[in-house]
Nucleic acid binder design. Structure first.
Length: 331
DNA sequence: TTGTGTTTTATTGCCTCC
DNA sequence: GGAGGCAATAAAACACAA
């Protein structure tokens, strides 16, 4: 981009001091020493091969030697001392009040506009760094969540295979019962429990399972003694053990109480709307953590259907949570 | 030395606030 | 409407490998 320049003596400046007005076509950026409003920016050119700051102290500006070798201005970097002072000032406050700007400019021998520009660019750099930090932090958080998710999936698969094998065993026992003598109708339930005890590894929360067992036994005593009770009871036992295992997983995922995954809004763990995306700190990132990554209402419905008609009468209070539990189970 | 990528300084245009 | 902030961008300065 070619720029034409008007070079003229700066009003009020010492003799020979020039200003360069950038008249680049289209008003494009680059090299101009005038900013909006026609505010002039002073610039002094270095001698060939001589390194020296573009903007110097007011005293230096008056030194005659600087008026030699006037050439078209070039962009100069601030000296380390100038940058240091600016950095310190930025650390104190990243916004620049007019008084501070003037004072800094005076101390540094810069134009106030330069100080303002430096702060503007510095804020932009800080924001970029902040975004990088936010990204790293969110990525780490996401990776951790994904690892947990994978672990839960493995757990889920293991439990599902147990359900299948135990269901098969139950079916075998049912078949055997129907084909054999009908001596003691309570016997199948006892056998199922024994079988389950052999085949299912210890649940993560024995207390919860114990409650289920107590419930199962209690209902078993009240049952009519039909062969069907064994099926219901076995399902109830499975449900209880599964729920305990899931609760354990959830607890480990949300230390401090299961309410963490109940408190994610009216839709349970499913996070809806724009708030589910990556957010900056300003947007309150982190408040949604653990709430929104694995939404699958179809899975919840499937889980509810699985247990419907089998164990629900044992766990009426858990029915309303079935969707959320299955959300962990089938994802 | 030269080509290339990065950093720094500065400008422009748009937006918001008073 | 003016002042100031921000995003986008240009271009000089700088760093560094080939």
């Amino acid at each position: 981009m070619e720029s034409g320049r008007l070079i003229f003596n700066a009003p009020g400046s010492g003799a020979g001091q020039m200003l360069f007005l950038d008249c680049g076509a289209g008003g494009g950026p680059g090299g101009g020493l005038f900013h909006r409003g026609g505010r002039p920016m002073l610039g002094l050119e270095e001698g060939r091969g001589v390194k020296r700051p573009f903007f110097t102290s007011p005293d230096e500006l008056l030194e005659e030697e600087y008026y030699d070798e006037q050439l078209p201005e070039k962009k100069r970097r601030l000296t380390p001392e100038q940058v240091l002072l600016l950095e310190r000032s930025f650390e104190e406050e990243n916004k620049l009040e007019p008084e501070r700007k003037t004072e800094l400019a005076r101390k540094l021998g810069l134009q106030p506009r330069q100080v303002a520009v430096w702060f503007q660019n510095r804020r932009a750099r800080w924001k970029t760094k902040q975004l990088e930090r936010d990204f790293d932090r969110l990525k780490a958080s996401f990776d951790a969540l994904r690892a947990d998710h994978d672990a839960l999936l493995q757990d889920n698969n293991r439990l599902r295979s147990q359900v299948v094998s135990l269901t098969e065993k139950l079916q075998e026992k049912e078949d055997a019962t129907e084909g054999g003598a009908t001596a003691d109708t309570a016997a199948p339930a006892v056998d199922v429990e024994a079988s389950l005890a052999d085949d299912v590894e210890e649940p993560a929360e024995p207390a919860a399972t114990f409650e289920v067992l107590q419930e199962v036994k209690s209902e078993d005593r009240l049952s009519t003694g039909s062969g069907g009770s064994a099926v219901v009871d076995a399902d109830a036992l499975l449900y209880g053990r599964f729920a305990a295992a899931v609760d354990s997983s959830v607890e480990s995922y949300f230390p401090g109480g299961e309410d963490h995954y109940h408190d994610c809004g009216t839709m349970g763990p499913v996070n809806h709307g724009a708030g589910g995306g990556i957010q900056s700190d300003d947007d309150g990132a982190g408040s949604d953590e653990g709430c929104s990554y694995y939404a699958d209402e179809a899975a919840a419905a499937a889980a509810a259907a699985f247990f419907a008609g089998h164990a629900t009468h044992h766990h009426a209070d858990e029915d309303e949570d079935a969707g959320q539990i299955s959300w962990w189970m089938w994802n």
